[in-house]
Design a protein around this nucleic acid. Structure first.
Lengths: 141, 141
DNA sequence: TTCATGTAAATGCATAAGTCATATAGTGGC
DNA sequence: GCCACTATATGACTTATGCATTTACATGAA
């Protein structure tokens, strides 16, 4: 059984209406594509921060810190910076290894607002799916 | 401006707090990864159907038929069959080109139930995000 | 001094998923 | 024959993610 699946609480065949077990998974935890992006933007809206700290704060959005991939987060931050949604500066004063401090730009805020709209619509789509599912799944057993 | 983006109603920089335009997009319409899969399973729960028909019915779940990729759907159907969640048979009687009729297996139903759980949790995650966003975005302007 | 541990950022490689274009083929109308 | 509609499928390419690994500084313990 694939690990990220278990962590996502998904374990195919084990959700809701019990059933078979051990199937291989591919649902990716069911997360929205690129969900990390709006989460980082929102966290940075609170004020500048560096990656390592964001990594911990991401728990708030359901990212399990134990099996979180720092690589993905750092890459996402650099991409957002490259595209003008964030700016960064090195902080070498605070002791420990140098940390890169990120800050959201105006474009970054716009992007976050756009994401909020996308997420809102996505929630509605998913709820429509669930309604349809609940209206049908009972009968079909 | 990328087309699927517009279709998703997202157009970066144009949602909510007006702003810049024309930025390239990468939000993938904000859809959940592999969302096509549970949608197909749910449609097939109503009874066997062939791909071309499913393609139209997918509108129900927010897939725009105009810019829908049949290739992805057919591949998804074949994968589900390969993995034992669907079975298929050729229908050559109905006139027109032969159509492949799909039917959900018991494993397929289990898979759909699992998906429903994943989607339910995903909705909660997204709503948590939106609450946090709404609590913050106002202040930070 | 050396070594382990925690902090911090990043790269390399492989696979998965999605996008876009194109191919193949039957059937019916003109 | 030629075109449009129905129906399924493949190929090439890009992006996103997953997992492993690398680099480097700092601090305290041995």
């Amino acid at each position: 059984m694939c690990s990220h699946h278990v962590a996502a609480g998904c374990r195919r065949g084990d959700a809701g209406a019990g059933g078979s077990e051990g199937a291989t998974c591919g649902c990716g935890g069911g997360r929205m594509k690129r969900f990390l992006e709006p989460c980082l933007l929102l966290l940075l809206l609170r004020g500048q921060a560096h990656g390592y700290e964001l990594l911990r704060q991401l728990q708030e959005f359901g990212f399990d810190p134990d099996q979180q991939d720092p690589g993905l987060m750092y890459r996402t931050l650099r991409r957002l910076e490259r595209d003008g949604y964030l700016t960064s500066s090195w902080d070498t004063e605070s002791g420990g290894p140098a940390r890169r401090l990120y800050e959201v730009t105006l474009e970054g805020k716009d992007l976050l607002h756009a994401w909020a709209g996308v997420i809102q619509r996505n929630v509605q789509t998913l709820q429509a799916f669930l309604r349809s599912y609940r209206g049908q799944a009972g009968d079909a057993e």
